[in-house]
Amino acid sequence: MLKYAGLHPHSKSKLLTLYHYVNCFFFVFLLVLAIMEVAAARSDIFRAIEGLSSVLFMIYTSCRYALNYHHKPDLAHLLQSQSRFWKIEDFEGRVRADCERMMEVTSRFIRYYKNYAVVLAAVFYVQPFIFHELQMKIYVPEGWFYYLYLVYWYMTPPLFSSVYGVTSMFCALAVPVTVQFKLLANEFENLKMRRRGSEEVGRLVDYHNFLIEYCEKINAHSSGVFLFEFFITVSVCCILMFIASQDSYPLVNKIKYTGFIISQFIDTAIYCYNCELISEASENVGKAIYNSPWYETDRSDIRRTVAFIISRTQKRVVFNGYQLVRVDMQTFTRIFKATLSFVSYLNTVALTEKK
């Protein structure tokens, strides 16, 4: 999916730069038309709100596209660094079974998620024929309907790849890190201090440092996506839920917007859940060291190293959007509550104005 949008680091075609500029032009073009729709709404509050949701969605997708295109070298480095990961086949017992099951479930989920995105893209293509209007509420000059439909037809791969493709890639980056923290915790917990010297402990410490740095690079690569994911989910879902809750609104549009709301919450939940998994797995490394037989060694350097790692793991690996938004399941709960609160407030205001 990322290759179709020119966002994958292995996409090195000479026409890629031109393709990128054409995409950016159409992103801006559709954003301008969405802003014009809001300006043209005037006294039609529902039309203005729909236009505003289109403005926010175009800002969201265009920024995600631009950020991921800019960070292609970082993504290439992250994928290349995975060659240093420990192989699951080299381990035995319960930890191997748990890690293999996690990788299998993730692979299956990404496959289903990709198919889900393909279905949504197909629906996106045929929306003008089903709902007799363009996929998003934008200003349509007289006689431009079919031309704008062709623009949406062309922009569907970049639009969906910048959302669903990038989210799938984040899963492909995050879950293997979680697995590596589990393997490292297993190594520390089963470490025989009397038989292993400081070199073996140092090797594990170096690998722990590598995983911490890898998580920091993931955060640097995805900070912009995290930030936009938070604000757009709250704002767009709040607007669309308010529209869908109105009795006078067409049922067909309610179904369309309900699907988008569910899709957006699923996308946000994927980021929050994977970040939470990494944070918990990194914290469990410290617990594994504490449960290891570190007391069996009389060497002061090994004991100091163990104490240092335990103190370091007490500070969890945390993902955030430019230090403004923390990404975990607690944040997802807050997003859901904030969206419902805003919708309730808007419904109260609308009811008061009717009276």
Rank of each mutant, 00 (worst) to 15 (best):
F145E: 09
R326N: 00
V236T: 07
V166D: 01
R312E: 03
E280T: 06
E276L: 06
I130G: 12
A5H: 09
F332E: 00
Y116N: 04
R101T: 02
I218W: 13
V349T: 02
Y19W: 11
G224A: 10
N284T: 04
Y257W: 07
N23Y: 09
R194L: 12
A97H: 09
T167D: 01
T333C: 09
M36I: 01
M241S: 15
F265L: 10
R203G: 11
I266F: 11
E280S: 11
Y116K: 07
I335E: 04
L173A: 01
Y149H: 09
E353I: 12
K254I: 04
L183A: 15
S198I: 07
M36G: 09
Y125S: 05
L159E: 00
I266T: 12
D301Q: 08
M155D: 01
D267T: 01
K192A: 13
F109V: 03
H77D: 01
A172S: 15
E280Q: 13
S161H: 07
F226A: 13
L240R: 07
M136D: 12
V105D: 14
L79I: 00
Y214I: 00
F242D: 00
L191C: 11
M102Q: 07
N68R: 08
L75C: 01
F319I: 02
A244S: 15
R334E: 11
F160M: 13
D298K: 11
T348C: 06
G51V: 05
T348I: 02
N347Q: 12
F145A: 09
C237S: 15
G286C: 13
K87Y: 03
M58S: 08
D206S: 12
H70P: 00
A174N: 08
V327R: 05
V119F: 11
Q264D: 05
R194Y: 06
Y345A: 14
Y295E: 04
A185H: 13
H132W: 13
L134D: 05
N320Y: 12
S344V: 01
Y139R: 06
S292H: 02
D98R: 15
V151K: 08
S168Y: 02
S311N: 14
I278K: 13
M103T: 03
V118K: 13
L148V: 03
P73R: 06
M193I: 01
P176W: 10
F342T: 00
A34M: 04
N219V: 03
K14F: 14
I232N: 10
L2F: 11
I138T: 04
S83Q: 14
V55P: 02
T167A: 08
G93P: 06
Q127Y: 01
I35H: 08
L211Y: 08
A48V: 00
L351F: 12
E199W: 10
I310H: 06
Q246Y: 02
M329G: 10
G224D: 10
F29Y: 15
Q264L: 12
Y249Q: 11
N186T: 03
E200K: 03
V140T: 05
I335F: 11
A350N: 14
S43Q: 14
L7A: 05
Y257A: 03
G6K: 14
S13H: 09
D328R: 06
E187C: 12
A41G: 00
